[in-house]
Amino acid sequence: METVKRVLVTPEAKKVIDQLSKQHGKLMFHQSGGCCDGSSPMCFKEGTFRIGSSDVRLGEIAGCPFYMSRSQFEYWKHTQLTVDVVKGRGASFSLEIPLGVRFVIRSRLFTEEEFARLEPIQNG
């Protein structure tokens, strides 16, 4: 039985990630828990954002690991996240900002059948 991914990426967002990868090398994502960025997915050069023991890895998008704090995951664990991109400047340190776009999350609840086949999370 095929596992269901917790995090996906739109084709448009993948194009931006590919562009950023060519410019910066390996990338990673962390789902912001609020503060000045609301709840935006943040893109960093791998290793420039410190992942801690309270973070979990939900999966990968476009070859990039995607993390979230365990406490925030407790609220989102029944939800499939899709990383998309929209025009406009976010108020963040995420790598896509100079391109005049920002990553956003689109979400939907898993069905009961999907929830039973979810990809396991990993500790950060």
Rank of each mutant, 00 (worst) to 15 (best):
T3C: 09
R6H: 03
L8Y: 05
V9S: 00
T10D: 03
P11E: 13
V16I: 15
V16H: 02
I17E: 01
I17W: 01
D18C: 05
Q23H: 09
H24Q: 06
G25K: 01
K26F: 10
L27K: 09
M28L: 09
Q31A: 15
G33I: 04
G33K: 00
G34P: 10
G34N: 04
C36T: 13
D37H: 12
D37R: 10
D37A: 11
D37V: 15
G38L: 06
S39R: 04
S40G: 14
C43R: 03
K45V: 14
E46R: 14
E46I: 05
G47W: 08
G47Y: 06
T48V: 08
S53L: 12
S53I: 07
S54N: 13
S54L: 12
D55E: 10
D55R: 04
V56Y: 05
V56R: 08
V56F: 07
V56H: 04
L58V: 05
L58A: 04
L58W: 03
E60T: 11
E60A: 10
E60M: 13
I61S: 00
A62M: 00
A62V: 03
A62P: 00
P65G: 06
M68E: 04
M68V: 12
R70V: 01
R70C: 01
Q72I: 07
Q72Y: 12
Q72P: 00
F73W: 15
E74I: 02
E74S: 14
E74Y: 03
Y75P: 00
Y75H: 12
W76C: 09
K77C: 07
K77I: 05
T79C: 05
T79H: 13
T82P: 04
V83R: 01
V83I: 13
V86D: 08
V86W: 07
K87H: 12
R89Y: 08
G90V: 01
G90W: 08
A91V: 06
S92L: 06
S92Y: 02
F93S: 13
F93W: 15
F93R: 11
S94A: 01
L95M: 07
E96P: 01
I97R: 12
I97N: 06
L99M: 13
G100N: 07
G100W: 00
G100P: 02
V101Q: 08
R102F: 09
I105A: 09
I105D: 01
I105V: 11
R106P: 03
S107H: 12
L109Y: 14
F110L: 03
F110H: 07
E112H: 08
E112V: 09
E113Y: 06
A116L: 10
A116E: 15
A116S: 14
Q122E: 14
N123K: 10
G124P: 11
G124Q: 07
